[in-house]
């Protein structure tokens, strides 16, 4: 079972111990990254589970406290705040799944065995159902009235892909050297920049996508 202290920091080789406070900080990072990245990021279901456990645990304790206790009200306020971040995080993932569902499912299909899944089991079920329902809907309202040769639709082509060339704002958490900046126009040349720790930048998501995944930069 997942517990705050058992959560590893992404890589299985090095088991990192995390305090509940660090757990919440990680959740907030994941929340902001998910909010600002144009594509769906890797799921953090382990993190979500740990936070849920913390909240449930705290709520159980609060059941036993009598009404009107000052401390309990402070705890409730904190829980409400964490819950807000958690649901906002999950909601922004669902929004992206609804927006890019064929591509999300395609990515999931082409993932090699052993690679971590981008979707949690629940999100995967949701995406599949969403795809099926959309197809049924389109068939019922339009496609079945079309000539037979026009009745099929390729969802991958019908739904726009996430635009990885979007610009994003980011803050650097670990210094990075030689990040290639592609030119905007044909007259310009490409060049490299160093990203110093703590500095903030505006650039294309595609260039720094791996750094977001590894946690070296934070989208803001």
């Amino acid at each position: 079972m997942a517990d705050a202290s058992e959560l590893s920091g992404g890589e299985e080789s090095q088991e990192e111990l995390m305090t509940p406070a660090e757990l919440i900080a990680k959740l907030e990072e994941a929340w902001l990254n998910e909010k600002f990245s144009p594509e769906l990021l890797e799921n953090k279901s382990e993190l979500v589970e740990c936070v849920m456990e913390q909240i449930t645990h705290m709520e159980e304790n609060l059941q036993r406290v009598k009404k009107g206790d000052v401390k309990a009200s402070v705890h409730r306020m904190e829980i409400d705040r964490i819950r807000f971040v958690l649901s906002s995080y999950l909601r922004s993932r669902l929004q992206k799944i609804e927006k890019f569902f064929p591509h999300v499912l395609e990515k999931e299909k082409s993932r090699a065995d052993g690679d971590p899944s981008f979707l949690s089991p629940e999100e995967f079920a949701f995406a599949k159902e969403y795809l099926a329902n959309t197809e049924v809907y389109l068939r019922n309202v339009a496609l079945k009235h079309m000539p037979p040769n026009l009745q099929s639709i390729d969802m991958l082509k019908a739904v726009p892909e996430p635009c990885l060339d979007s610009f994003v704002f980011l803050r650097v958490k670990e210094r990075q050297e030689n990040i290639l900046v592609e030119p905007e126009t044909d007259e310009q040349r490409e060049y490299v920049v160093d990203l110093d720790e703590g500095s903030q930048h505006l650039m294309r998501y595609r260039t720094i996508a791996p750094l977001v995944a590894s946690g070296a930069v934070q989208l803001i």
Partner: peptide, 16 residues
């Protein structure tokens, strides 16, 4: 100037 990269140190989240 059709730039592809900008450094924005000291800008706060609300300003962005």
């Amino acid at each position: 100037q059709q730039e592809a990269h900008a450094q924005l140190d000291n800008l706060t989240l609300m300003e962005i």
